[in-house]
Simulated assay, not measured.
Amino acid sequence: MMRSAPLVPPAANLSLLTERSREIFRQLVDSYLATGEPVGSRQLSRLLPMTLSPASVRNVMQDLEELGLVYSPHTSAGRLPTELGLRFFVDSMLQIGDLEDAERVRIAAGVEAASHAHDFEGVLAEATSLLSGLTRVAGVVAATKENVRLKQVDFVRLEPERALAILVADDGTVENRVIPVSRDLPPSALIEAANYLNARITGRTLAEARETIETSRQAAQVELDQLTARLVETGFASWAGAPSDRQLIVRGQAHLLEDLTAAADLERVRLLFADLETKTGVIDLLERAEQGDGVRIFIGSENKLFSLSGSSLIAAPLRDSERRIIGALGVIGPTRLNYARIVPMVDYTAKVVARVLGGA
């Protein structure tokens, strides 16, 4: 599993953590992830596999606080892990669990059924909904449309120097782009350019079509007159790499309203909803999750998107049948996510989606 750059105390300070300190810290974090509540020394002394008095536990917790791994939200309260402490726990202590057979069956069956009933976007939406339902937080996915197979291209003159380029995909989606054209371009050139492209892109993905057009660029200049060849190049380039080729799907935001224990929790969720409305920020974060082979974990303010809401993202890259990155899929929720359970769930779902979309 790959995680984002760890933000942990210096190694020299970590060497001060004895086995007893590590066990106390582990139990504190485990309790926090389960309940979201501060953990006191008396409670920890009962959870520990060793016999320690509450006073001894309190002394260790003070040391952990000086290292920046825990903090006390109130003077008389127990401790909670800091974002730094959670990062240290995730990078150094997290023991990844395994999915139950029933969970594997539910994910695989849901995604495969969606592939028969829906298009590319429908499969992603179903996978995201499944993840959200299983984890009880928000599911998110960002993906390109480059693996959708193309069906037809048309050009329609709008004004003397503008035309509408229309791209139709096999799944029925339609993309329109307004492109500049020469005032001298004859009407027949629009038909000729469309016929030229349709003969070369039908049934191909956008990436495959782009490669085909690039390869035949010189041939196009020979076969077509200069103005028509320019129209072919301009029209196809209008789709390649366009920002709208990135789509974001969010499902299950309502789960984030469950199990709120304080007004501060409600404010955090309100801020997270605002984050999720910032499409560019979420896509940028998921694009960072694409940069690796495994699951990545982003915690709280170590990513600027969550600087106010204090949330976490667990995400894995999506790949097609040729192992090319086509997006990332994951969940967003409070920092007290059940990382050990959710990490393998996200990883498995991403692999099932990649298999289904790739036809493997």
Score class of each variant (00 low, 15 high):
Pro6Lys: 01
Pro6Asp: 01
Pro10Lys: 00
Glu19Ala: 12
Ile24Pro: 01
Leu33Ala: 10
Val39Arg: 03
Val39Tyr: 03
Gln43Ala: 11
Leu44Thr: 03
Arg46His: 13
Asn59Pro: 00
Glu65Thr: 07
Leu80Met: 11
Gly85His: 02
Arg87Trp: 07
Leu94Gly: 05
Leu99Lys: 08
Asp101Trp: 14
Ile107Trp: 01
Ala108Cys: 08
Glu112Phe: 08
Leu124Asn: 04
Leu130Trp: 05
Thr135Ile: 11
Thr135Ser: 15
Gly139Val: 05
Val140Phe: 07
Val140Trp: 05
Lys145Gln: 02
Gln152Leu: 13
Pro160Val: 12
Ala169His: 08
Ile179Thr: 03
Leu185Arg: 06
Pro186Thr: 10
Leu190Ile: 09
Ala193Thr: 03
Ala194Met: 03
Thr202His: 03
Gly203Cys: 06
Thr205Cys: 07
Ala209Gln: 09
Arg210Val: 06
Arg217Ile: 07
Val222Gly: 06
Gln226Asp: 13
Thr228Asn: 04
Ala229Arg: 03
Glu233Trp: 07
Arg246Leu: 15
Leu248Pro: 01
Arg270Tyr: 12
Phe273Asn: 13
Asp284Trp: 04
Glu287Trp: 14
Glu287Asn: 15
Lys304His: 13
Lys304Gly: 10
Phe306Asn: 00
Ile314Phe: 08
Leu318Asn: 06
Leu318Glu: 09
Ser321His: 10
Ser321Pro: 00
Arg323Glu: 13
Gly327Ala: 14
Thr335Met: 12
Pro344Cys: 05
Asp347Ile: 02
Val353Met: 04
Leu357Met: 12
